[in-house]
Structures are given as structure tokens and as C-alpha cells.
Design a protein around this nucleic acid. Structure first.
Lengths: 153, 153
DNA sequence: CATTTTATTTGCATAATGCAAGTTATATTT
DNA sequence: AAATATAACTTGCATTATGCAAATAAAATG
């Protein structure tokens, strides 16, 4: 009936659409890319430019400019690593953290709504499935560069 | 432990990376966007520009140009709808179909590899989970414009 | 100390985006 | 059956995003 790819294609497209023009919060109008950067800076405490860029699969030069934009609107901070002053450590400002949290709540609230159409058992099965899937993808040789396995598994 | 959003964020990012710079096939160097268009034209037989654009969540003017590019490299055809000549019906050329099939094989082969790290039972559970998830998202009021529910469910 | 490597930024040229306005075809009024 | 409105698509244009190559600055290595 439905092949694997079809299922995944539809699913990821839906999440893509959900993220798209992700959010206007407190007058800040963020793109999907920006919300992903905030998310990842929040998750990887005190990470370098390169680490976050690589996690997100973004070219470092593009990422450099994306970060500049987020610094300009005061959601992100950059400070030189005292151990190695070539490195810039990224962190969220208080505003940035608060916006990242709001986005997280919005996403979880959307997911809660989706899950409300499912039984308790189905919900747990799905979450466990995605967990397993992420583990399996992390093992795959053919995929997907580092995307934070260390943090997740 | 892991919240919903985290699981989904990681998963969709991985698939995004997989799609990214999706494929070079028979000398054709396709972007992720192009492969998604081929996929959707293949799936929705004889659909109009607007239908595909809306399915993909792409602005119609951007989509118009994307289609022009695919026509230029002879992967896509456009013909006026005899019922309403304002409408352009899209279809794949033979080359386009063959490339779409190859991409499909590649994606499924990647997914097979990922699934090889899982037990038979886990594999079935995951596929069923994604199916249920897609159904639930289709029911959601807050998400994701039409993305082909009619075809899937 | 000279050379190489690494982390990040900038220059530049190219591609992608989307709004507003245009074109052509169908629907609806009058 | 004009005349007007609406719909499907395309094009102009200005903005933004992209990424390679080259530049800068700070380690690391010889």
C-alpha cells in the first residue's frame, strides 16, 4: 500500500509547513531557520559557531550571517572562548531564551492537539517509535551529519 | 525526559538533511525543492499548478518559476486543461518519471538501511505510528494546509 | 620564529523569494 | 451580448538567502 518514503515525505512536509514562517512573538518576526537556531543554541549550552552550524547542516558562512542578524535583534550573544579566542561561544539573551521557550510551548501545544486525536496507547507508541527511529538514523552511515546525537542518546 | 517537540525536531531535521542537495541523477543535479515537485506531480496525476503549489505550501509565483525550470530541463510538461484553458495541467516527461522513480528508490533504500537497525516488530510499529500520526495531523485544525490528504487517507 | 592549520568573517556573484501588476480565459451582471 | 468581475497563471522588481573564494585573526606545529 503506502511505501515508506510516502509516509515520511508527507510527515516531514507537514512539520515543515508547521515551522514555516514559524512565529511572530513579542513583535519579533522569526523565520523557521531562525527558530531552529535559537532551539539549537538553547539545547547545546555554550557551543561554538561551528558546532551549531554543523548540527543544523548549514554552511558556516551562511550561519555566520544568520547569527549576526540574531545578535542585531538581541536574541543571541556571542563571546570569545577564553580557552581559544578564535572560537565564539553562542548563547541566548534573556529575550532570546524567553522567545525560544514560547516557541517550544507553541510547538508542544500544537503537538498536543494532534495527539488529542489519538488514544493514550497510540500516543505512547508513536513517541517511542520516533525515539527508536532517531536512534536508528543516528546509526546510519548514509545519513545526516551530526544533529545532536550526543545530546539525545 | 525528552519532550515531544525535541523528538520531532530531531527527526525532521534528519530527513531535511537527507533531502538536502537531494540528488544528482543521470547528469541532472536536482535540489530538494525540485525533487519534491517531481514527487508531487507524479503522485497527483494531471493536477493543476495551483493544486501542486498549494500541496507543497509554495507561493504560486515561485512555483511558476520552479516549474519553468523543470520544463526547461525536460522533466516536466505543462498542457492547457481542455475544460478550462486558464488551467495548466502538469505531468512528468518520460525522463522526469524515470528520475522521480530513481529518487524514490534511493530514498526507500536509505530508509531500508535505517530500518535494518530495528527489529521486524519495531519496523512495523514505526510505520504504523507514522501512518497514525499523518492521520492525526490531517485532522488538526491548526496545521499545515492541504498536503494531499485526499490521496493518502 | 616561520609555517600551517583552524575558526570565523567578508566580497561577490548567483539563486530563491514574494508582492504588485500584467495577461488571458471563464463567470456573472446588466 | 457587452460589460464587469473573478480566476489561473506569468512577469517585473526589489529583497533576501546562499555558498564559494579570499581575508583576517588566533592557535598549533615544525
Amino acid at each position: 500500500m503506502h511505501n515508506k518514503r510516502e509516509l515520511f515525505q508527507i510527515m516531514t512536509r507537514r512539520f515543515g509547513l508547521l515551522n514555516k514562517n514559524c512565529c511572530t512573538i513579542d513583535g519579533h518576526d522569526l523565520s523557521a531557520a531562525q527558530s531552529h537556531i535559537l532551539y539549537e543554541i538553547d539545547r547545546q549550552a555554550e557551543a561554538s559557531m561551528q558546532q551549531i552550524a554543523e548540527t543544523l547542516g548549514t554552511d558556516i558562512t551562511t550561519f555566520s550571517r544568520q547569527v549576526q542578524a540574531l545578535i542585531k535583534i538581541e536574541l543571541v550573544q556571542k563571546e570569545p572562548d577564553p580557552m581559544d579566542r578564535r572560537v565564539s561561544l553562542l548563547s541566548l539573551t534573556m529575550t532570546g531564551k524567553s522567545i525560544a521557550d514560547t516557541i517550544d510551548e507553541q510547538m508542544n501545544s500544537y503537538l498536543d492537539e494532534v495527539f488529542s486525536y489519538l488514544t493514550e496507547f497510540e500516543q505512547e507508541t508513536i513517541l517511542r517509535s520516533i525515539y527508536l527511529l532517531n536512534e536508528a538514523m543516528a546509526k546510519s552511515s548514509r545519513c545526516c551529519s551530526p544533529v545532536g546525537e550526543k545530546q539525545l542518546f
